[in-house]
């Protein structure tokens, strides 16, 4: 089996220092909507300058290099045990090279491991087998703590918000989550919403949607409409970049549906900060491509 450690370090470097083009495009569009001279406009200008600098200097876009979340799709025959070891070795080296901040803290004894490795679950790695003729793909998302902290899960019905067990109710709780987040999730952000599932699967699904491109609307026309509506309505709240007030609070919304128990109706809202870091590497034979 190939040793992909070096290629994985490059994946981590790119993810931490080079924001994807589709996200930058949305941020530029957001800048154009804000009043020149306003705090919101200034914040977006700084954000765009920072993105450029980070790319040029190969330094982290954000000092919170986040929870590393890997999704690996491997063709039959690859060893997930070895891939996992290579990912962990790459993470340790990328931390030494200051592409990543040491971010794994033992929650019981309050000790930072110093190398971004912690127990079996940090970094988080999800493996999925694909057909033998498919390439190996490794996707990485870095999700910062500020935006992770403003994520929310609702169990419907929610009487306080008058939210019932239907898409109208989903809309209400999602808008509530945006209001509660204010600027703390580093607005303008992106919403990832999962409807259904149990508490665990629902939260995972609400993050998985962040691997999709910004302009990939839901295939389901009902959900695609709700995505657009939520983005528009969230922006009407005027929270704005950094919570300074302004027109851009949310850059986009992604929604997915899961099956649920008759008794449960969970809505999980994950918030992704503007530093929406995700990259993918594809391995076909000896060739390695990044996007």
């Amino acid at each position: 089996m190939q040793d992909l450690t070096k290629a994985m370090i490059e994946l981590i470097r790119r993810t931490s220092t080079d924001l994807p083009g589709d996200v930058v495009k949305r941020l530029q569009a957001a800048l154009d909507k804000e009043e020149p001279g306003s705090a919101a406009h200034g914040a977006l200008e700084t954000i765009l300058k920072n993105i450029e600098l980070a790319r040029e200097n190969s330094t982290p876009i954000c000092q919170d290099t986040g929870t590393p979340i890997f999704y690996v799709h491997y063709p039959e025959g690859w060893s997930t045990r070895r891939l996992k070891q290579q990912i962990r070795d790459a993470m340790e080296e990328a931390t030494r090279l200051a592409y990543m901040r040491p971010n794994a803290v033992d929650a019981v004894y309050d000790r930072n491991s110093g190398n971004n490795l912690g127990g079996d679950d940090f970094p988080y790695i999800h493996f999925e087998e694909v057909d033998a003729d498919q390439p190996l793909t490794i996707e990485l998302m870095l999700k910062g703590g500020g935006c992770e902290n403003v994520g929310a899960q609702y169990s419907l019905p929610n009487n306080e918000l008058g939210a019932g067990r239907d898409l109208k109710g989903v809309r209400k709780v999602a808008l509530d989550a945006v209001h509660k987040a204010q600027g703390n999730g580093c607005a303008p952000g992106v919403l990832g919403i999962a409807i259904g599932g149990d508490r665990g699967s629902s939260y995972y699904a609400s993050k998985e949607v962040f691997f999709q491109k910004m302009d990939a609307d839901s295939q389901d026309p009902t959900l695609a409409r709700l995505e657009q509506q939520l983005t528009d309505e969230a922006n009407q709240m005027g929270i704005g970049p950094m919570g300074f007030g302004g027109k851009s609070t949310v850059l986009g919304t992604k929604i997915t549906g899961l099956h649920r128990l008759p008794a449960s109706y969970f809505v999980s809202v994950s918030y992704m900060c503007w530093a929406y870091r995700r990259r993918k590497m594809t391995v076909s034979g000896d060739e390695i491509a990044y996007d």
Binding site: T46, N50, L53, M242, F244, C273, W274
Partner: peptide
């Protein structure tokens, strides 16, 4: 004083 969240490379300068 509010600094711009996430603008880490820029502020580091």
């Amino acid at each position: 004083l509010h600094a711009i969240g996430g603008a880490a490379s820029y502020i580091a300068q």
